[in-house]
Computed example of a mutant assay.
Amino acid sequence: MTNVLPAASPSPARTGLVVGKFWPPHRGHQLLLETAAAQVSELLVLVYANPDDPRHAAPARAHWLRELYRGDDYALGPRSGATPLRIEALPAAAVPPDAADDTTHREFVRQWLARQGERIDVVFSSETYGPGFAEHLGVTHIAVDNQRQQVPTSGTRLRAALAEEAESFGESALHIHPFIAGQYGVVPPATVPRLVLLGAESSGKTTLSIALAEALGTAWVPEFGRTLHEQKNGKLVYEDLLYIGRRQLELEDEAAAQAHGWLVCDTNAATTALYSYYYFHRCDPALQRLAEVCRQRYAHTFVCMPTTPFEDDGWRGPEALRQFQHGAILMQLEMLGIPYTLLDGSVEERVAKVRAVLG
């Protein structure tokens, strides 16, 4: 399931509507949103529930959805032709109870749209209530995977699974984007185990990643934060850090399809969170949660010692900063309870140490 919105139909211009709890947002919701976006010039998404999730209320879930559909080429500007997607979160106190009858819910949405001056042309849903809801609004209805054949899950089923311990969530996590799963402290089952390399700037992570991938006969995942930093000529903004954390997970999943035995990962969300604090003195709660589940996501964590010759490539900070960064990484790992192995010496020595740990 992609999280890149398709281009809208060139004509006629029309606005679509999707309404739901999105508790939690799952692959079925992504299918619904992406199918809808392909057929309208603008898509309005209303997120609400009453009672609401006490841990992650509608505003948080709406924030996650906005992040998912931020766009993979964000660094290069908005994608030409992409469907504008507006996601609105409504507080639980302002909406009817979930147990209210269909007419109450339909009329609530109709009146809300009228107050906002919204004109809707088509409703998209994956629920049986969809046709009656659209008829009440006086618009067309389009059903998307009502039988759950493309994505065999539902919000009700996933909420029940999330109510259990994270360890027992199991295969249900496959129906949730890894970014969303991380918000609930869950890591989807991996097709191959992952090892991650951390380290200060110019500590040899990239060189070691390439060497390890060759030695293990597998794939490796470059540091997306570095890529984006260069694409934006060093001018990252606060929102970019969460985007980096989310995109890194997607790149890992893509690379896992080519991996054999192990997947080598250059950096993780914990380091991205550190840089968020370093550059902006704050960190998005969603990125904090991605950092917290790094212990479950990676089977082994290795930290490269900053003893390699410093290379000033024009993008890095001063050499003296390396020692501070190294200490900050170790402190964060210990505070998060993530075991790690230090790597020192030549590239060959570091590869040998990793192989010895992997067994």
Rank of each mutant, 00 (worst) to 15 (best):
H281S: 14
A328Q: 15
L174H: 09
L198N: 12
D145S: 02
P6M: 06
V19D: 10
M331G: 10
A286S: 11
L137C: 09
A75C: 07
L198F: 03
T206C: 09
H26M: 02
T15L: 00
W262I: 10
A114S: 08
I142G: 03
Y340P: 13
P318S: 07
L212A: 14
W64E: 15
T206N: 09
K353F: 04
T271C: 06
G16I: 01
E135A: 13
R297P: 05
A286V: 11
R246Q: 13
P309C: 02
L17D: 14
W112Q: 06
D284N: 03
A328G: 07
L342T: 11
P152E: 04
E252H: 03
R148S: 04
A75T: 14
P178Y: 03
R66K: 12
V123F: 05
W64I: 14
L76H: 13
N268E: 12
R119D: 13
A114M: 04
F324L: 13
A269I: 03
R79G: 14
D284V: 11
A49H: 04
L321D: 15
A93S: 10
P25H: 05
H26V: 08
R61C: 05
H56P: 01
L197R: 03
P152D: 04
T156V: 10
G359L: 07
N50F: 04
P24G: 08
N3F: 03
Q248E: 09
Y184D: 06
L336K: 05
P12R: 00
L76I: 07
A92K: 00
A352T: 10
P178S: 01
F22W: 06
L343D: 14
K353R: 14
S346V: 13
R350Q: 11
V151R: 06
V19P: 03
G77V: 12
L33F: 00
A49R: 04
A181Y: 00
V293P: 00
G234F: 01
L290W: 00
G327R: 00
R157V: 15
A163F: 02
A92I: 06
S11R: 11
N3G: 06
Q332R: 14
A273I: 12
A114F: 01
A352D: 15
W23S: 12
V237Q: 15
A58W: 01
G28M: 00
D98E: 06
Q147N: 11
F224K: 08
L263N: 06
Q288G: 04
R322Q: 11
